[in-house]
Design a binder for these strands. Structure first.
Length: 471
RNA sequence: GUCCCCAUCGUCUAGCCUGGCCUAGGACAUUGCCCUUUCAAGGCAGUAACACGGGUUCAAAUCCCGUUGGGGACACCA
């Protein structure tokens, strides 16, 4: 068995979307598992819609989710001569012909046929005219087989049979000399020795159009695998109105790349009851037979859960690193710069069980930067009252007696005071929480103090007492 | 309209190929309880599905046919 070679071939007409990432992911997984080659090819033969920014967005997106490619990126626009020469080969062999029908005419005939309830396929009127492209404005059409059937043994869907008589003679070279998708794909997949074409379900009906071209060109036909689509909550194809579809939008929303990969791979693939996988496990356990044949609805809530899990289990320094850009865009650039990576990782540990996304984490982490605390007015009003001020004063005195912070000792001192005052834990804990963090919700008090350190804890306690006495 | 694909809890899915172990399992979400200094996290419990109709068989979620429903494709887009 020769080496597995797969490819991801997006068209650069926008950002890299979630469906594209999933397609790339399955290709990548298979390549890595089989010790094969993952090729990246940019299908930019549509001059009007392709942009360089879009190519950059695709590369950026793939890099973010960690799907590295071994060859490419190849751009089809740099290979135009290649397609032309193969098209000419077909013409010479009599397997293609020039068609002088104008685009508008074809459009009109299609509409007419549809109105009559007929198939909108091309009527092959130029097929046997033996036209030459004298004016240079004809399109080249492939002579599709008129009878028989094309059988595709799909890796995911199994055997699929298409009647050849429903296929029409598709254009392989436009009148402007540019190849069309179905042709350049075949030439490239053949020339790049692609062994397995793994793509979205939406390409399934392109397969019986491409297979005869492989054959006409004398190329071996690769194996095909068609991944079911991703749907929105209304079961319609996933699109902008279902929420963000750009992979990079998820970075901005605070998702971890590993979480995206884990969620996306489980959307259509499973390994028993397992929900969370490391990359290595994914590579080892991936199998076509476990790929779903039916489309899957994208569920943002489960994505959030997966992300929360990854925030909890990923190495804190790694999460901290991913958090930095989010801190920056939240206006905490200077603060993030002022602290050490180690301390930031401590902060992550402090709040990681509470944040489901990095964006949420930014808010959880905000109170721990800087010397002073910013009070939530409502929280301060409710808990930093004149009545509590003297108790906070006593707590401050007890804490000050310790030359250094010790979680056990300080907690002990705190509890003793609560008992001495005849209070309930919460009656003192909440005011202290507000003094320390400015808010009514936070991680455990003594974990907070640990991250804050002795000096800042005492400073903020004084700040809280001051506020309470003036209330 | 034509062609193709698909069909298990609200959602992602296990089970289907190789019928019996399925009183249909797990996860997300949801509900309740527990834990608790707040918010989370966590633990426990609950609600919830084989689209429908025919076959085949001693036996069907599983095999076959049909219906219905959903998706996709029918461009000088990819």
């Amino acid at each position: 068995m020769s080496q597995v070679r797969v490819r991801f071939a997006p068209s650069p007409t926008g950002f890299l979307h979630i469906g594209g990432v999933r397609t790339a992911l399955f290709n990548w997984l298979f390549a890595r598992q089989q010790k094969g080659v993952f090729v990246l090819r940019i299908e930019d033969t549509d001059q009007d819609r392709s942009t360089d920014e879009s190519i950059q967005a695709i590369l950026e997106g793939l890099k973010w989710v960690g799907l590295d490619w071994d060859e490419g990126p190849f751009r089809q626009t740099e290979r135009i001569d290649l397609y032309r020469s193969y098209a000419m080969q077909l013409l010479e062999k009599g397997q293609a012909y020039w068609c002088s029908c104008k685009a508008e005419e074809l459009e009109a005939r299609r509409k007419e046929a549809e109105a009559k309830g007929l198939s909108p396929k091309y009527d092959s009127r130029c097929r046997d005219r033996g036209l030459a492209n004298l004016a240079g404005d004809a399109a080249l059409r492939f002579k599709a087989p008129l009878e028989g059937e094309t059988v595709v043994d799909d890796l995911i869907k199994g055997k699929i049979v298409f009647d050849n008589n429903v296929q029409d003679d598709l254009i392989i070279l436009r009148s402007n000399g540019y190849p069309t998708y179905n042709f350049s794909v075949v030439v490239d997949d053949a020339l790049m020795n692609i062994t397995h074409v793994i793509r979205g379900d939406d390409h399934l009906t392109n397969t019986p159009r491409q297979v005869p071209i492989f054959q006409a060109l004398g190329f071996p036909v690769p194996q095909f695998g068609h991944l079911p689509m991703i749907l929105g909550s209304d079961k319609a194809r996933l699109s902008k109105r279902h929420g963000a579809t750009s992979i990079m939008a998820y970075k901005d929303m605070g998702y971890l790349p590993d979480a995206m990969v884990n969620y996306l791979v489980r959307l259509g693939w499973s390994h028993g009851d397992q929900e969370l996988f490391t990359r290595q496990e994914l590579i080892e356990k991936f199998a076509w037979k476990n790929v779903q044949t039916s489309p899957a609805v994208f569920n943002p809530e489960k994505l959030i859960w997966v992300n929360a899990e990854y925030i909890k289990i990923s190495p804190p320094d790694q999460v901290a690193q991913a958090l930095v850009p989010l801190l920056e865009s939240a206006g905490l650039a200077a603060e993030a710069k002022a602290v050490s990576a180690g301390w930031l990782a401590q902060l992550v540990i402090l709040v990681k069980e509470r944040a489901k996304t990095l964006v949420e984490m930014v808010e959880w982490v905000r109170p721990y930067f800087g010397q002073a605390v910013a009070f939530d007015e409502e929280a301060a009003k409710k808990f930093l009252t004149p009545a509590i001020a003297p108790v906070l004063g006593k707590l401050l005195a007890r804490f000050e007696a310790f030359p250094a912070f010790s979680k056990q000792q300080w907690e002990e001192a705190f509890k003793q005071l609560v008992e001495a005052e005849g209070m309930k834990m919460g009656q003192l804990a909440q005011p202290v929480r507000v003094a320390l963090t400015g808010r009514t919700a936070s991680p455990g008090l003594f974990e907070v103090m640990e991250v804050l350190g002795r000096d800042r804890t005492l400073f903020r306690l004084r700040q809280g007492i001051d506020r309470a006495s003036r209330a």
